[in-house]
Design a protein around this nucleic acid. Structure first.
Lengths: 216, 216
DNA sequence: GGAAGCTTGTGACATCGTTCACAAATTGCC
DNA sequence: GGCAATTTGTGAACGATGTCACAAGCTTCC
């Protein structure tokens, strides 16, 4: 099965919505119900789901528990994936808490940092370890995912070390292009893009406002 | 002019690449040169740019400084946009530093928090102010953008307060659906989605691994 | 058992995005 | 000046994505 990223994203959304319904003890839901409840498109839900198999019952709708199960399994979100943070600066510590919090499928179980001052800090249920122990940490906890929150110039090196240590995927929050090997997929996340997207909808800038330095 | 988000994203990428070239004192570049240097597609660059006007010279290429200028202006990234953080927890503080750092078009100039313990903290060049002063803070600094890094249940209320205070756009990092008014665009960012995207490329989960709690 | 009312799964259609090939325009060289 | 070498801007083909209408299938009620 080969899911395009755009459909994959929607499926994740559906799964979250379904989990919400589970919490509310809803057991049956129609595509229309889902759409209204979570501001989605009913035909699109049906089309997306139909691509994966026949999960619904005509005239009735979808079984919330069953669909949650099937989707979780397809999206590989039915089992816990241990995560290590690489770089325990401000962003690293914040993300460790944020991503670890209330998010079943991932658990941030360890963090490393090069800076001896950070080693030993207690963060979100684990103690920061020195970068030199990365490989051991990964093996100890059976870690699958590494999250890079290091300065840009350290990103490539730490990606390489994560590959070496044996993780299966890497998330890169540092604003640097990293060259990845095909066996260990890399996902770049540049948070600046969101501000930039927003800027486009901001009102025309006053000429009074300060120019940005690098604009000639 | 109406730019689709997907093209807008690429234009932001081009602009970043151009700024890099400026730093390296490169003054002329062809679409092919850009493509090779930053792993993009040359025909796509041309098509994207041609949509906005005729910026290049046939047989020569693009003038880096001029194109940077034009793109900056179109993307509204030629002037500084003041930003306020709402919620100075871990994520708020980390993002204040991250987004303020080395990013010309946006400047995080203020932050507020409801928690009296956080008020007065020095973060990234400003002092945390109480939430009650949000409106005054926005007016004092001519703030255009609010960034929500508050708990999910506080997101809607704080969005409303930001609108009331007079900002023109809001970025929401809390994993909660917020209802927005059309005059103040809202961009939801759910960092969990990135881990979920990655999960899909992880190896088939061992049956030994712990099940996630909410999966039935 | 049959008809009426839902709701899914699906094929047809429209829209959007990407790739490609090439004409038009510029430069430099002879 | 003319020709070869570049490089842009663009129309045409291709592919992906989203929308919609409707047949197929289930349930309920009489």
């Amino acid at each position: 099965m080969d899911l395009s990223p755009i459909i994959h994203n929607r499926l994740c959304l559906y799964l979250r919505s379904l989990r919400r319904l589970q919490e509310e003890d809803v057991h049956k839901i129609s595509s229309q119900g889902l759409a209204e409840r979570f501001q989605l498109s009913a035909p699109q839900i049906r089309k997306d789901l139909a691509q994966l198999g026949e999960f619904g019952i005509r005239g009735v709708g979808y079984d919330v528990d069953e669909l949650t199960c099937r989707l979780s399994s397809i999206l590989r979100l039915d089992r816990v994936h241990p995560v290590v943070m690489v770089g325990m600066g401000n962003l690293g510590r914040a993300l460790a808490r944020y991503l670890g919090f209330n998010h079943g499928a991932f658990r941030v179980v360890a963090g490393v940092d090069k800076d001896p001052d950070k080693v030993g800090l207690q963060v979100a249920g684990f103690q920061v370890r020195p970068s030199s122990e990365l490989k051991r940490v990964v093996q100890e906890h059976d870690i699958e995912v590494g999250v890079l929150t290091v300065p840009p110039d350290a990103a490539q090196g730490n990606y390489n070390r994560l590959v070496e240590a044996g993780v299966s995927g890497v998330l890169n929050f540092s604003p640097a292009r990293v060259q990845a090997v095909p066996e260990v997929p890399l996902k770049d996340i540049d948070l600046r893009i969101y501000l930039e997207q927003l800027a486009y909808f901001l009102p025309e800038s006053d000429s009074e406002k300060e120019l940005v330095s690098s604009a000639s």
